[in-house]
């Protein structure tokens, strides 16, 4: 493939996929270690109706209304969970399950019932993302990367996910020690005066921002694979958190690149005509990486036993 084809058609979707994967994998490391990995799943379910309502109100798929809609939906979710838990006198897990599923269903229903034909927001895109369509039509080759006119036409989604990735990286870098300490030993962290509750909430919010931003790239369901698979696979490669983070970034990038390429060209290699969903293939590759590390990873056994 030449630059003339690659830059306009494949470069931006690949970058968006890569950035989205890394933006989810970084907070995912801490969520997995805190046994909160499914919070990513919960977020992705809950924010869908918020995003749809934001779209219906503004009539456009743009960043700020989507973020506000997602945040609003999260507040509604928390209120609903509390209400169900108190009124129904049932355990929080059940209240959450009901709320997440109901809100996701409401999001899908809203999408189906509303006219979204003019933009890239329909059920399929909400579920699987629309990575392939995030192309850069103003580009005509590698030279466009330094051409201000062409750069002005970069897809908005790329800018959005880049900013998100910067926010995620800044958060993890700045709060590295408190995150590590409070994930390992929350009680001890509190005796140092650390506000572990606030920090845990901040982590969830950063994860939510990543999930909403990755909505464009991989949709609201497959994003869960991005939160869990690369960090979980990375954990099986090392016994040091610093190295685990590095591995998770590598796995996220490999998943995004390989997933995109295989989705686009894989069917051709086996003689089929059509490409398959890039987001689906990215999740598949990350799942395969997790399976491989689960079988061959060097640190996959519980080390518990004393070594003398």
């Amino acid at each position: 493939m030449t630059g003339e084809e690659f830059v306009p058609l494949s470069l931006t979707p690949m970058l968006i996929g890569m950035f989205a994967a890394v933006a989810c994998a970084l907070p995912g490391n801490f969520l997995v270690l805190r046994r909160q990995a499914l919070i990513g799943d919960a977020i992705s379910h809950v924010v869908l109706p918020g995003i749809v309502v934001a779209f219906l109100v503004t009539g456009a798929v743009s960043a700020w209304p989507m973020m506000i809609g997602a945040a609003g939906a999260s507040v509604v979710a928390v209120a609903l969970i509390e209400a169900i838990r108190r009124l129904g006198k049932i355990e929080p897990g059940a209240a959450m399950g009901v709320t997440f599923t109901a809100m996701f269903a409401a999001g899908v229903l809203l999408l189906e019932q509303s006219d979204t034909s003019t933009v890239h927001l329909d059920v399929e895109h909400a579920l699987y993302g629309n990575l392939e369509s995030l192309i850069w039509l103003d580009a005509d080759g590698w030279g466009s990367l330094v051409d201000p006119v062409a750069l002005a036409g970069l897809p908005e989604e790329l800018i959005r996910i880049t900013l998100t990735l910067i926010v995620v990286c800044a958060f993890v870098w700045l709060f590295w020690r408190p995150l590590k300490l409070s994930t390992f030993d929350e009680g001890f962290a509190q005796t140092l005066g650390m506000r572990t509750g606030v920090l845990g909430l901040a982590l969830v919010i950063v994860a939510a921002i990543a999930a909403v931003a990755a909505f464009d790239a991989v949709g609201s369901i497959i994003v869960i694979a991005m939160f869990i698979c690369p960090p979980a696979a990375a954990r099986l490669m090392t016994n040091r958190l610093e190295v685990q983070i590095a591995w998770s970034v590598v796995f996220a990038l490999v998943s995004a690149i390989a997933g995109y390429v295989i989705a686009g060209f894989g069917p051709m290699w086996i003689g089929a005509d059509n490409a398959v969903s890039a987001a689906g293939m990215i999740a598949t590759v990350s799942g395969i990486l997790l399976a491989i590390t689960a079988v061959f990873g060097p640190c996959r056994t519980r080390s518990g036993a004393p070594v003398e």
């Binding site: 700045l174 020690r177 408190p178 300490l181 140092l192 016994n239 040091r240 958190l241 685990q244 519980r302």
Partner: peptide, 24 residues
């Protein structure tokens, strides 16, 4: 009270005791 499978080394745990000195 903690998960000893947490990916870290002995020396890193002891260094956590210096958090007040080291800060962010």
């Amino acid at each position: 009270s903690v998960d000893w499978d947490f990916p870290t080394r002995v020396i890193d745990v002891v260094l956590m005791g210096l958090y007040r000195e080291l800060g962010l």
